[in-house]
Amino acid sequence: METPLLQVVDLKKYFPVSGGILKAVDGVSFSITRGETLGLVGESGCGKSTTGRVILDLIPATDGRVVYKGTDITNSVSRTLRREMQIIFQDPYSSLNPRKTVGTIVGEALQVQGIGKGKERSELILETMAKVGLSGDYYHRFPHELDGGRRQRVGIARALILKPSFVVCDEPVSALDVSVQAQILNLLQDLGQEMGITYLFISHDLSVVRHLSQRVAVMYLGKLAELAPASELFTNPVHPYTKALLAAVPVPKYRPDRKKVILRGDVASPINPKPGCRFAPRCTRAAQVCKSEDPVLRDLGGGHMVACHIA
């Protein structure tokens, strides 16, 4: 088998907080092959963004390894490597510097990396803007003068100007309305294919993740619950949490007989988590072993992985 573009091995990120230790990411492992889109889903606070940030070395890992093209890059992403690894953020409102023009924002990485100058640089900026569907008229505008969809295009242009091979998309369409969201999803899909980009696509929206990803990882309280090829995960979920999550998504179709399985309780705190399966307190099938032992991610065959004692 081809070596994966990216491997994440037992990755951990702990934050010391007043109440103890907050285990935001607690032993996550997966790999992404070249050209693939891996979706990462889960509810608020489960550690998706933290995972993405640690991989890109925007924040240091507590433990574990990140291997990129066969090289260990944990906590050591160099400036040259940064060109290849980029991130697109959720909030096109707060992630763009309000005092800089669109052209400056899009060209920031060129400046940091010392690539091109003067006319050459501005041409590259305009070319990238065109690629994401932004007319050159916006070059001297400020982010607040743009609507949400165009602002997100600026965020995409900024991430793609150096032609990266790996991009973390952290909820890139969550702040957008559906009609505009679809434009951005198509754009990400097209550019990904055209430029051969490998994506880690983070979202809490399962429909969006299914639409774009070849494989999907489901995260719960800092750990992976299940990971499988997209069609397999959505048609044959095995983990009780994945099942509950899928059942809870409201479907925009007239289906008066759709059965709702409603999960009780709230997500527990990630501060000083109790031993055992993180989902056990809400799981209707939890057995004794679930409360004492952490389930490990095991392969059910065909790349379908699950971390559950009873599934």
């Binding site: 679809a182 899909q189 429909s207 969006v208 299914r210 639409h211 959505f234 998504v249 479907v251």
Partner: peptide, 13 residues
Amino acid sequence: LPDLESPKSRLTP
């Protein structure tokens, strides 16, 4: 809208 149950190859925005 992306479809959770029967994915479309492309959206029509």
